[in-house]
Design a protein around this nucleic acid. Structure first.
Lengths: 166, 166
DNA sequence: TCCAGATAGTTACATATGAAACCATCTTTC
DNA sequence: GAAAGATGGTTTCATATGTAACTATCTGGA
C-alpha cells in the first residue's frame, strides 16, 4: 500500500474550503432570509441587478456562476413579489431586460449594508496584509479554476510530495 | 442614501469564496461520482472513516460539519452497497460503530490519490509560500467562524471603510 | 424505582435542485 | 425565403436536502 494513500481531511484544502464557505454562506443567509423572505439565489440575482440594471437572465447567470434554470426560477419568484421589473428587448424577442423595482431597490438598500457588515466581521480576524493576501489568493485560484475547467482534465494522480505542509 | 450602500460582487469575499468552492467541489466530485457511484456526502463519510475507523454516526457528523440526517442517509446507502460495516456498541444500545468494509477500503484507496492529485493540480498555481499562506488563512478564518457562530451575532452594519481593498 | 429530560439515529414531508426535454425566437446558409 | 441550427428562457421530472417529528435508548434526580 503506497504511503501517499492517506488523506487527512483537516489538511485537505478543498474540504476545508467547502466547510468554511458553507458556514459563511449560511451565516449570512440566516440574516437576510427570514427578515426579507429572500432565498440565496434570489439575493444573488438582486445583487447583480442592483449593480448592473437591465441585464438579461442569461447575463445574470453568467455573472453569478448560477445555471439558467436557477436564475429563471429566482427571477420568477422575484417578479411575483414585484421586486423586479421585466421589459422586452427592442430587437430580440427572446430576451428581456431585468431591473430592481422600487420595492426591490428598497430591499437591496437594506441588505447591502447588512452583507457588508457581516463580511467585515468575518474578515476582522485578519490584518490588512492578510486581507490583501486572501484577496489575491482567491483571484489567482479562481482564474486557475477557469482555465482548469475550460479544458477537460486528464487523470491526475498524486505524487509522493504533499501538496501543502501542515 | 449612504454611500456605503454599494455592493461590488467581484470584491465581495463571501461571494467569491462560494463561487470558487462550488467549482472546486464539483470538479472533484465529477471525477469520482461517476467512476465509483459515490455522492459527495457518501465520500465524506468514507473519507472520515478511512482516517478514523469505528466512529459513530454522530462523530462523523461532528467531524464533517454535515448534519445527522445527511450522515444517516449516506451511511444507509453505503451499508446497502456493502461499503461499510456496522457493529453495535457494547455499552450503549443507541450507538453503532462504523468502519469501511474491504470493499469500501478498496474504493477509498482508489479515490484518495485521485483527490490528492486534483488538490495538487488546483494548488499548482500557487508557489509554496502562497500555499502556506492559504493554509494559515483558512485556519484563521475557520476558527473565527467557529467563534462567531457559537455566539449569536448582533445586527452588524457596515462602516464607511471598505473591508478589502481591490 | 420511576419519571423527566437528554441523546443517537430514522422517518416523513415539504422544498430545492439539476439534467434534460421543450418552446419560441433568432441567425445562417443555401 | 425556407430549412437547419443556435440561443434565451421555461417546464418537467427525478433526486437531494433540511426541518421537524418520531422511536429507542440512556441518564439523573426524587
Amino acid at each position: 500500500m503506497p504511503s501517499e494513500t492517506r488523506l487527512d481531511l483537516d489538511a485537505f484544502i478543498p474540504y476545508r474550503l467547502s466547510v468554511l464557505t458553507n458556514r459563511v454562506s449560511s451565516a449570512i443567509a440566516r440574516h437576510y432570509s427570514d427578515r426579507f423572505d429572500l432565498s440565496i439565489p434570489e439575493w444573488r440575482v438582486m445583487a447583480v441587478l442592483g449593480q448592473a440594471p437591465g441585464l438579461s437572465a442569461r447575463d445574470v447567470a453568467a455573472r453569478t456562476a448560477m445555471d439558467k434554470v436557477q436564475v429563471s426560477r429566482a427571477v420568477q419568484s422575484l417578479l411575483a413579489a414585484k421586486r423586479l421589473t421585466r421589459t422586452a428587448h427592442s430587437q430580440d424577442g427572446r430576451v428581456a431586460h431585468l431591473s430592481l423595482s422600487a420595492k426591490g431597490q428598497a430591499i437591496y438598500n437594506d441588505v447591502v449594508p447588512l452583507a457588508l457588515g457581516l463580511e467585515k466581521q468575518f474578515l476582522s480576524v485578519l490584518n490588512l496584509a492578510e486581507q490583501k493576501s486572501l484577496d489575491a489568493l482567491l483571484s489567482k485560484l479562481s482564474r486557475h479554476m477557469d482555465r482548469m475547467t475550460a479544458t477537460p482534465v486528464a487523470d491526475f494522480r498524486a505524487e509522493p510530495t504533499a501538496a501543502v505542509p501542515g
